[in-house]
Nucleic acid binder design. Sequence first.
DNA 1: GCGACAG
DNA 2: ATCTTGTCGC
Length: 217
Amino acid sequence: MKAHGNNFSTLCELQRQMAQQVVLSSLKGEIRFISGVDCSEVQGRVRAAAVLMSWPQLEELGRSAFEDVCTVPYVPGFLSFREMEPMMKALEALKGPVDLILVDGCGIAHPRGLGIASHLGVATGVPSIGVSKSPLVGSFEEPGEAPLSSSPLVFQGRQVGWALRSRKGCKPIFVSPGHLIDLEGALETVKMALRGYKLPEPIRRADRLSKLRPPKA
DNA sequence: GCGACAG
DNA sequence: ATCTTGTCGC
Ligand SMILES: [Mg+2]
């Protein structure tokens, strides 16, 4: 899934094609393990991190990170071509079963319906949900101030996600289905993954880990 | 044409 | 995302 040598129109076409493979149905099967993934960049290098937790207890079972030279620049709408492979490497390094993946980024709330969470979901065949700190596309009404208040995120006349007040006094986070899950399931899952902070626990931990410098020997 | 624009 | 100390609010 290299982005090298491809122009934007080609990448757009790839996204539109893969978006047709996205499945938005109720979550199937038992969920026992959930993973949170995020990616950071420091001095020309990308560092992806993944954290594995039990569900719904959310006890940490393992974590991993993968670092590499960063070649692809960040361009709105094409984040997956920059961060998806490092994230998959980190997920593979977990060496554990993953039933659901929470991704720092968008799911179907994307110009062509294939945010990084959806792209990762289709590529792995694992159910996924996108959680971002700001919306890439769509409009919404400010959720109520009460924690867990939510409002629809609408793009091109249809709901593609939610604005969720994940914590008192904080700006809302944006939740959208990635793959193999529906709007209601994505919202409920993220709510269940909150542990007193703005971000759901698996992503919060992956975010912290991705920002840690590789331990020096 | 202009402005917006996940991380 | 990153650059960065103190500061305001719950
Ligand atoms: Mg991130």
